[in-house]
């Protein structure tokens, strides 16, 4: 049982993740549940993380994610932008830029040497460039969202999904398919399209090496590859790209104790 324990809880719209760390920032417990804000997801994630860490209480808690404001038990609530930056900087001290593509939002964050945010930019309300776009694509292509990457690996470049509007992109895909493009090629085109949007967004704050990608979409090898191709920057990935919010929050919780 750790001497002091700090928890970060990242409450999103469709998932909740709790991370518990000790004084040395080592992870002692973590758990993710696919239930988001307003559900029992946060409580369940915390209970499991407590169990894993073998504790019944933590010294400090920081909440992040869209559900952070409703989570009254936290000592502080901090945005996922700050938390992602902080978590990434802890694990990759050379990181200067964080590209975070989640289900609803895409963000490009410039990180200061101390792990704080220097500048950032988020997507506009249009879904292009976010995970939501990939969900729509996977539905149209009739495959699971986790299969897209593998599919795109077999695709040939050349299919261009240029529409920024998701509704337009959907019918663009349908007409690509009906004019004979394979679903593999289309999947590759869709990934390229996301990458173009992200790199465009990144231009507003500038990209500097090292670039780290976080968020659920970072699990998609093909998108990561496309972002590398379009931006001309090497992308560093983390073992657990979805956990950075909660991990960063836990680091901020540890700060509160000092």
């Amino acid at each position: 049982m750790p001497e002091r324990a700090y928890m970060g809880i990242d409450i999103g719209s469709s998932s909740s993740k709790a991370v518990i760390i000790d004084r040395d920032a080592a992870i002692r417990g973590e758990h993710i549940i696919n239930l988001g804000t307003g559900s029992r997801g946060p409580a369940d994630a915390i209970a499991k993380a407590f169990e894993q860490a073998g504790i019944t209480k933590v010294d400090r808690t920081v909440a992040t994610g869209y559900g952070r404001i409703l989570f009254k038990e936290a000592d502080k609530q901090i945005t996922e932008i700050s938390c992602h930056a902080r978590g990434v900087k802890q694990l990759v001290p050379t990181a200067e830029t964080v590209v975070d593509i989640g289900g609803q939002d895409a963000k490009v964050i410039r990180v200061k040497p101390d792990g704080r945010v220097e500048n950032f930019v988020m997507n506009d309300k249009c879904a292009a460039g976010t995970g939501r776009f990939l969900e729509v694509m996977s539905r149209v292509l009739g495959v699971g969202i986790d299969q897209l990457s593998e599919l795109a690996d077999k695709g040939k470049p050349g299919v261009n999904i240029s529409s920024t509007c998701t509704v337009f992109a959907e019918s663009e895909v349908i007409s690509q398919l009906s004019s004979g493009s394979s679903i593999e090629d289309v999947a590759l085109g869709a990934h390229r399209s996301i990458a173009e949007r992200i790199v465009g967004l990144a231009g507003r704050v500038g990209i500097e090496d090292d670039v780290v990608m976080t968020g659920g979409v970072a699990l998609n090898d093909s998108v990561v590859q496309a972002v590398e191709d379009v931006s001309g920057h090497k992308i560093t990935r983390l073992k657990d790209p979805q956990g950075m919010g909660a991990f960063g929050a836990a680091l901020y919780a540890r700060d509160l104790d000092n």
């Binding site: 901090i78 945005t79 996922e80 932008i81 220097e118 930019v121 988020m122």
Partner: peptide, 25 residues
């Protein structure tokens, strides 16, 4: 901080995240 809004908005959550982060930085 640059934010993009409309006069009528169903959700201000993304804007809130941006503004709070601006405060944090």
């Amino acid at each position: 901080l640059y934010i993009e809004t409309e006069q009528q908005m169903d959700s201000l959550e993304q804007v809130r995240t941006s503004i709070q982060t601006f405060g944090e930085l």
